[in-house]
Structure formats: C-alpha cells, structure tokens
Nucleic acid binder design. Structure first.
Lengths: 154, 154
DNA sequence: TGCAAATGATAAGCAAGCGAATTAAGTACG
DNA sequence: CGTACTTAATTCGCTTGCTTATCATTTGCA
C-alpha cells in the first residue's frame, strides 16, 4: 500500500506536497504583489472581468459566474465600491437585488489585469514545452469539471 | 493585443477564469468535507504528514517545509494540539523553539489522509489519459518552481 | 386574495493565508 | 563583558473563502 509496484499518477506523485494548493497560493501572492499599487486584489479584480463581459450584473449572478457563495461577492463588492471601482444600484425590477456597474476606473483595471496575467504566466511557463502546456490546460479544465460535478452531486 | 492571431497558451486560455485558483478551492472543499468527520482540515492534515516524515520538527522547520509563514503554522498547530493530534515540547537545546510531535491519534490520521487523497484524485482524474496526467503533473511541478524562484528573487 | 416558500443580500463567526510588530532567547563581535 | 544582531514564536489586523442565520422582497399556489 505504501510502496505499490506501479503507483497510479496522483497529486502526491510530484513530491508528496499539495501541488494544486501551493501553485494557487504562489500565483495569488504574485498577482497581489503586482496589483497592490493599483489598490486592488486578485479576487476583486476577477469581479471586474465579469462586469467587463457584462456590466450591471446582480451580485448573485456574479457569484454564480465566479462559482463562489453570494456572501463572498458581497464583501468583494464592498471593497471594490469603497475604492470606487464599481457602483451598486438597486434593481428597479426587483428591489432585493443590487445591480453592479464598473466605473471608468474599474474598467481601466481590467486591462491592467490582463497584462499581469500574461506576465505571471510568462514566469510560470518558462521552459515548458508549448504542447505540454496545452495538454496541461486541457487536463486542468477537465479536472475542475470532474470535481465540480462531484460537489454538485452532494 | 486583444486578438492575437495565435494566442500563447495561458491560464486564461481555458475559459477566462482562474483555473488554478478554482481547482485548488474545489479540491479543498472536497478534502475538508471528507476530513470533517475526523475533526481536522486539509491544511492541518498536511502538517501531520511532515511529522510523519520526521517527528519532532520545530514550528519554523514545519513552516519551511510547507512554504508558509511561521504565523500560519503557529495557528495550525494550536488547533492540532487542541484536538490532541500533536504535542508541543520546548526544545531543551533552544528554549525559543517548540518541537512538535505527532500523537498516536495524529499518526493514524496520516493513513486516512493518504486514502482520501487517492479518492479525490480518482474523481479528479476521471476520463483523463494517464500519459496526459503524467505530463500535467510534471508541468505543474515545474510551474511551482518557476514561480517560487520568482518570489525568492523579490 | 393571502399565506408559504424561495430568493437576494447581509451579518456573525470561523479557518487559512499574509505582513508587521513584539517578546524572549541565542549568537557574534568589538 | 556587553551591546547589537538574529531567530522562534506569538499577537494583531487584514483578505478571502466558508456555513449558518436573518431580513426583506418576490413568487407561487390554493
């Protein structure tokens, strides 16, 4: 059990450390360092990208697109609003709901984010064969779907 | 710039969502659900695996192996100790330092964790070609090293 | 119509990260 | 020897995530 003759590849195969977790953490640290001068964090920035795709989304629609609990977006939007990157507006058609609009400053940050994503990826992808990279991104997408279906099942 | 004729593969290639981040989050949710009956979280459990490899590590050595800040391990060990999975003991050779030892209960949990890692991986890896999986794990390891060197540089 | 159930947002409280500041203990050097 | 620096751990305060509970509104159905 501890030394199978031919171990299935698993997330432990790398070096008995949580690669997925560590990778996400290291990426977040780098992103936040690069975004700090702009007064925003990476999670807040992702909210802006959704508004860039479709402005005036409700908070719960944003939560749905980010696959995060509505309470999480609530606080993200608080901070974005504090810094003037978005504005809440009560939905006239449903007064429980807030529509969220990116301000001009908020929209400008999306361009910054895109640039930073490429910067970070450039560092991360150094020395990696492009076709292996493509394979990897496909695999990661599939894993995410596999795990999300499992969660939905319970 | 926004529509290059042949975009470099990047973390945005998947679907303009933070795959690395989402994958880590979804995995953590599944792990924590499976570990909850044992009274432990996935981050706490990783501490135990390091003690399993070498018992009696100091808190800062644990932090070093986990690549997290010492303050993080401090709190993880608080909770592990509260639940009786580890014991702190002042280092007789350096009274600033705490040596951390896994209890019998703590050691037992490492076996549980290993089983759960395989369970989660089985879900995550469904329908993925084994050789693609191997490629992916190699790529992720390389990315992690690339990013960690970048962080060390600053 | 009227009341129950569902939905959108928030509040409170917890875990896991971080950085900065603090305290205690070791180390090194003039 | 003593002062200055380093190191180990903790405390404080922050962000992001979660769950659970609450409040207001809307919807659905008898």
């Amino acid at each position: 059990m501890s030394e199978p003759s031919r171990p299935r590849p698993s997330s432990l195969t790398v070096d008995y450390k949580p690669v997925f977790h560590e990778l996400a953490r290291v990426r977040a640290i780098l992103f936040d360092a690069k975004l700090a001068p702009h007064g925003i964090t990476i999670s807040q920035a992702w909210v802006l990208t959704h508004l860039w795709q479709e402005d005036g989304l409700s908070q719960s629609k944003i939560a749905g697109r980010m696959d995060v609990a509505t309470v999480t977006t609530s606080k993200l939007i608080d901070r974005l609003e504090d810094h003037g990157f978005v504005k809440r507006q009560v939905d006239p058609a449903d007064r429980r709901s807030n529509l969220v609009f990116a301000t001009k400053e908020g929209r400008a940050l999306v361009r910054v984010l895109t640039k930073i994503v490429y910067e970070v990826d450039e560092v991360a992808n150094a020395g990696i064969d492009p076709s292996d990279l493509e394979t990897t991104l496909g695999v990661l997408g599939r894993m995410r779907e596999n795990l999300k279906s499992e969660l939905a099942r319970s």
